[in-house]
């Protein structure tokens, strides 16, 4: 595995062609481009139904320059299991060769409807890399809540703001015994591309949780996509860390976090959360941020020894 240290290490390896139909400033697409620039051949990409699939694969066109398959919304991990195992058998029989299978799935296809297939694939220990681009709602169907939608965020099915906080998907996958689970953000391109390579090089089911700001569904100006990812990280709302064989490591230390309001106030989806009468909800949100950061620090300290 070679380390990515300069952008010129990535240039020329484009896996996604332009001309796709993602909204202007789509953060998911920035993340996917970086993932494909980093991935080491040979690999096959599986994408469930969702924005990424729809913006990239309208017959007779495709934006994918790498082998790619979409089957349904809730089964990307199962499809990936099938590809991975089949190629293992075919290689043994001299009828094919193994590829690394990389799933790139939305939060709905990961946290919600695809969760059973994901859990099954991780429990069975398939050799695959599952990457969730998290835009924190069902964007493709018009911004409905998912288990990844944060507390207080308005979606078309939570018009007055969601009452529940995000599911901690990383801990759940750590609980599956995955050898490598990490978070990343496209604004930290070096972190993301190196994590893709690292996760790819580890045998077994590995997972990356990548924040993917969505100007359309979060209601912010499209030029702010990268800023938004950066703010998510620097407010400690989206900490950057990895869990390797149970050992926690915070990869991007935020010693002086920026106030969460800086992030929230740029996105109209949080307008309700910021109203004075909802101060208690905002308090809950802040507490959640603080608790998770403390938890990560504690886990990093406990597991490093």
């Amino acid at each position: 595995m070679s380390q990515v240290s300069r952008l010129s290490d990535l240039y020329g390896r484009e896996g996604l062609s332009p001309g796709h139909s993602a909204c202007r400033g789509c953060g998911a697409t920035v993340a996917v481009r970086q993932i494909l620039l980093a991935a080491e051949p040979p690999f096959i990409v599986v994408t469930p139904t969702g924005c990424l699939e729809v913006i990239s694969s309208q017959f007779p066109y495709t934006s994918w320059r790498v082998p790619w398959v979409h089957v349904a919304f809730e089964n990307a991990a199962a499809v990936a299991s099938g590809i991975e195992a089949a190629l293992r058998a075919l290689e043994r029989k001299g009828l094919g060769r193994r590829h690394k299978v990389i799933v790139i799935a939305g939060d709905g296809g990961t946290f919600d409807i695809g969760f059973q297939a994901l859990s099954g694939a991780f429990e069975r220990g398939h050799d695959l890399l599952y990457i969730c681009y998290d835009n924190e709602a069902y964007m493709n169907t018009g911004i409905q809540r998912s288990a990844a939608t944060p507390l207080g965020s308005a979606t078309t099915t939570t018009p007055a703001g969601k009452r529940e906080q995000k599911k901690d998907i990383v801990s759940i996958l750590v609980g599956h015994g995955s050898p490598y689970v990490a978070t990343s953000s496209p604004h930290l391109w070096k972190d993301l591309t190196n994590k893709v390579r690292k996760a790819q090089s580890i045998e077994g089911p590995t997972f990356l949780h990548v924040v993917a700001p969505c100007p359309r569904g979060w209601y912010f100006e499209p030029q702010l996509t990268i800023k938004m990812a950066k703010l998510a990280v620097e407010t400690r709302i989206f900490p950057i860390y990895e869990v390797e064989n149970g050992k926690y490591r915070i990869n991007y230390m935020i010693n002086r976090p920026r106030p969460v309001e800086e992030y929230l106030k740029l996105q109209s989806r949080f307008a309700y959360l910021l109203r004075p009468e909802n101060a208690h909800l905002l308090e809950r949100f802040k507490q959640w941020v603080e608790d998770r950061w403390n938890y990560l620090q504690k886990m990093a300290a406990v597991t490093s020894s």
Binding site: V46, S81, G82, A86, L90, A117
Partner: peptide
Amino acid sequence: HSALSACIGASLSGA
């Protein structure tokens, strides 16, 4: 659901 989904992945891999 996963059985047939995995079969599709395998079949599209040439198996």
